[in-house]
Amino acid sequence: MSADRRAEVAAGLDAVRRRIAAACADSGRDPDEVTLVVVTKFFPASDVRILADLGVTDVGENRHQEAEAKAAECRDLGLTWHFIGGLQSNKAAAVASYADVVESVDRSKLLAGLARGAHQRSHPVDCLIQVSLDPPDAGAGRNGAPVEDLPDLAADLASRDLLRLRGLMAVAPLDADPGEAFDRLAAIRRELLVDHPAATWLSAGMSGDLEAAITRGATHVRIGRAVLGERPRIK
């Protein structure tokens, strides 16, 4: 473990924790209500060990192959692993075999595989429905279930053994005001809670917009660059 790298990660982590605390203070919230998920995509397992040593409990990965290998290498750390990337149905069971939280459930086609993986592991998987905040005329955008599909998808997910509907995840649309996007997300969340009052998690906010997300009720923020620096280039 490089002392220089540890110092670099510690400084980034401290800055982000201060931002979270300030955003919570501005909105009258307790910082303990917000879980920091550090996104380690493309960063080595040695960085995950530094994070764990600095008190991070939750890490996120976007790509199955990398996530699977890193989770296995760092199994001794007792971390909570979040899968936050777009998920293919033929990889769902494999992802559920190591991920404690799957944040990117955006269609019912994924649920059978996720349930199968959870049963093979005999371990419940916490699931968030990724909802699209892109306008209807945006064309190809980020992943996410259309808002009109949310009631049926939530009901289907909630009915599956060993899959637990925890809440929602979303990404602010590119070139949009994140405050306006997260205002809309908060309204969608209120509607979901009517039928699923236990689905209280809200994963929203990244390095550039975590404050806007926290002031609108985010319980989880997904931070990569602001903690770990610019991602390494893919070889």
Rank of each mutant, 00 (worst) to 15 (best):
A71L: 01
S108N: 03
A158N: 11
D76A: 15
L150A: 13
V125R: 05
E73F: 00
D156S: 13
L114I: 07
Q130D: 13
P146D: 15
D100A: 03
D152Y: 00
S97T: 08
P151Y: 09
P146H: 10
E103I: 09
P151V: 12
R121L: 10
D152F: 03
D149Y: 03
A112G: 02
A69C: 02
A112L: 12
D100H: 13
A158D: 14
A96H: 10
V95W: 07
G117I: 02
L114K: 07
Y98M: 00
C74D: 11
D76N: 09
L111G: 07
I129K: 09
A145Y: 06
S132M: 13
R107C: 11
L77A: 04
A115H: 06
K70L: 11
P151E: 09
L114M: 12
A96G: 01
T80V: 14
R160N: 04
T80C: 10
K109M: 08
A93E: 15
E103W: 08
R116G: 03
D156K: 14
S89K: 14
S89M: 13
A118W: 11
K109W: 02
L133G: 08
P151T: 03
R121S: 11
V101M: 14
C74E: 01
W81K: 01
A112N: 10
S104T: 15
D149W: 05
G86F: 08
C127W: 02
E73W: 00
G85Q: 14
D161C: 05
D161K: 14
V147I: 15
T80F: 00
T80W: 00
K91L: 03
A158V: 07
G113F: 11
D106Y: 07
L150K: 06
S159H: 04
V147S: 10
W81D: 08
S97V: 00
P146T: 04
D126S: 14
V102Q: 10
C74A: 00
P146Y: 02
S122F: 02
Q88G: 09
R142L: 15
K109R: 15
A154K: 08
A112F: 02
Y98A: 00
D161N: 12
R75M: 00
W81Q: 03
D76W: 06
H119T: 10
I84C: 12
A99D: 00
L157T: 04
R116C: 05
A92Y: 04
A154R: 11
A140T: 13
D161H: 11
D149P: 04
Q88V: 03
D137G: 06
W81M: 01
S104P: 12
D106R: 10
H119D: 13
E68W: 05
L79H: 07
V95M: 13
V95C: 11
C127D: 09
V102E: 12
C74M: 00
P124K: 05
E73K: 05
A112H: 04
A72F: 01
I129T: 12
A99Q: 01
P135I: 09
A92V: 02
A115L: 12
V147G: 04
P135N: 01
L79C: 11
D126M: 07
S159V: 01
S122Q: 15
S104W: 12
L114A: 08
A155Q: 14
L110P: 05
G113R: 06
H82V: 11
S159C: 01
L110E: 12
D161Y: 02
